[in-house]
């Protein structure tokens, strides 16, 4: 099987990685780069736990080949905070009690960040729609939805 040398920017830093053809972006992040904040919940594009930003768009990293990330800009949950200043979404997930077991949270935060980036003032149904691909079994989503709403309200204060 062929290997490919790819150059990719992850959380602002550029990496050169050798990846086999059949490696997914999720496997590369977790197994090659030890960026284990991104979670593997189904490996089938259904649960959203592995969501990352790929050139600014939320994708399931289990449904992207690592080789496709050549030249791409990737942001994982580890890249949401800047200089230990948390993303407002992270702050609000904590303060609103949106976190329980926490396994879905990295993907949930990335989907929410992608939403606020493309739609800074989302309506309730926009939030539900944007997060419907992120399964959570603990929270019933109630506080997650609320945290995203609050973060949108504070949107102006957020770092670019």
């Amino acid at each position: 099987m062929a290997y490919h040398r790819i150059t990719t920017t992850i959380n602002g830093a550029t990496d050169v990685v050798d990846v086999p053809s059949n490696m997914t972006l999720l496997q590369m992040l977790r197994d090659k780069l030890a960026l284990t904040g991104t979670k593997n919940g189904c490996a089938a594009g259904e649960c959203g736990a592995c969501t990352v930003l790929f050139n600014g768009e939320a994708v399931n990293s289990c449904m992207v080949l690592a080789v496709e990330a050549d030249g791409a800009d990737i942001v994982t949950v580890e890249g949401l905070a800047h200089d230990s200043q948390l993303d407002p979404l992270q702050e609000l997930f904590v303060s609103e009690g949106a976190v329980q077991c926490g396994f879905c949270i990295p993907g949930m935060l990335i989907s929410a960040r992608a939403l606020l980036d493309r739609r800074p003032n989302p309506a309730d149904h926009d939030i539900r729609d944007a997060l419907s691909g992120n399964l959570c079994r603990c929270t019933g989503y109630v506080r997650i939805i609320k945290a995203v709403k609050e973060a949108a309200k504070r949107g102006h204060a957020e770092p670019a």
């Binding site: 284990t36 997930f93 976190v99």
Partner: peptide, 13 residues
């Protein structure tokens, strides 16, 4: 506030 929430929200847990 939950004592484990921040670490979980930054993907460090």
């Amino acid at each position: 506030i939950r004592l484990d929430a921040r670490e979980k929200a930054i993907g460090a847990t």
